[in-house]
Design a protein around this nucleic acid. Structure first.
Lengths: 219, 219
DNA sequence: GAGGGGGTTGAGCAGTCGCTCAACCCCCTC
DNA sequence: GAGGGGGTTGAGCGACTGCTCAACCCCCTC
């Protein structure tokens, strides 16, 4: 009962096993043996297919981000306001959490802080999300003061980073995170009001911002 | 050369060693032996003083958050606008990073996702920051539409969570984080403009918000 | 000086880690 | 049928893990 090519895509099984293990037991308990067990596969195959555990994690990180982004792209395409974006993000997150896929990106992100080999894959995974969010932001913010006075690409990065942080926050303090999201929704509704400012008000905003920049020393 | 009471506070040495190890090598490489080595102390003392590695990490988490908050409390007390709060946060963060203390809270936060024993200590550490931020927010937002239409306590939680996420984001993509922070500063400046809205405009905002709530179904 | 408890030490146990390796099976090619 | 390469397997190496333990030293109390 040893050996033999089973034909099924072992690489994929391993990456999905890595995502499962990462989400369920954290990066500290994610080893070649634990991942292989979760994938129903021999642990030596980790090294045959990926060379090292780090490489497996990096590949799994990209793979997982692609899967999640692809699955939710359609829903994001329907978002037209900041408040909707926020609500959509929460729904996606709760869905993933219910499905057992909680915050694998957060786990590799934590690992990448001190393990530079993981950083490129983590960045790549985050960038997939950032790109989707940026598309939405550009659309939302096109004819709003928000678009005129802020950089949507930078804002998209901020949203991605903040979401990861809030996702982790929710893991340790669900009630606190609930309040945080509610406050953010109120804030988004408030931002929506800005869109209704007329041209006169906008000129005032522009003037005021220029004054602020002078005081703070430009840029 | 064995035995003897050195008198110096070994508990403190261990907690500081844990914070150093956590920041420098990540939670995956934080073991009783590595922490003890960083503290210049025998590894068995971890178990004598704290009972287990988890308990040491929990204690270190509280201790570290207290130290950091206490060290920066004065500076936070001088903050009077959202833009200043953001700038202050970045400065604190760069200072900590330069000093080698990067994101130990982020590390335990990641660990706490799957290790429930760490969650209470992590929450306690985050709450220290949240409390300080809330004080600042209440002051900033007291006579602004932001205060009238949002919950400062929830907002403080959102800021804490977002900061942790952005801190980790900076660890893997410094240029991206730089753009994110710049966009947030622009956003904060824009929010500052809201403060100059007159009572008439505020009534309009209030009316508009009420309409939005009805459409979305209240709460 | 005798006793005792708080603090510290190095050795050691059982378990897991990353990774390697020879053996093996299956399937394709000749 | 012989050969060969891709895929898979269990065993095993050295290093590291959390944790325990008997021994030990120092200082305080009587």
């Amino acid at each position: 009962m040893t050996g033999g090519a089973t034909g099924a895509d072992t690489r994929t099984k391993l990456m999905e096993g890595a995502l499962r293990t990462l989400a369920e037991h954290g990066i500290a308990k994610t080893s070649a043996r634990s991942v292989a067990a979760s994938a129903g596969v021999n642990q030596a195959l980790v090294f045959y297919h990926f060379g090292s555990v780090d490489e497996l994690l990096a590949a799994a990180c990209r793979y997982g981000a692609e899967q999640r982004v692809a699955r939710h792209r359609d829903r994001l395409a329907g978002v037209t306001t900041l408040a909707e974006l926020l609500r959509c993000g929460r729904e996606l997150h709760e869905e993933e959490r219910a499905g057992g896929h909680v915050a694998f990106l957060a786990q590799v992100l934590a690992g990448a802080q001190t393990q530079p080999r993981l950083a490129p894959a983590t960045t790549a995974g985050l960038d997939l999300w950032t790109a989707e969010i940026e598309k939405v932001l550009v659309r939302i913010v096109a004819d709003s003061p928000l678009g005129e006075f802020t950089d949507p690409a930078g804002l998209a990065r901020a949203v991605t980073g903040a979401f990861v942080g809030l996702e982790m926050y929710e893991g340790v303090d669900p009630e606190g995170a609930e309040r945080a999201f509610e406050a953010l929704e109120q804030l988004a509704a408030l931002a929506g009001v800005l869109d209704e400012l007329g041209p006169v008000a906008r000129r005032a905003v522009r003037h005021r911002l220029r004054r602020t920049e002078k005081v703070q020393g430009g840029a």
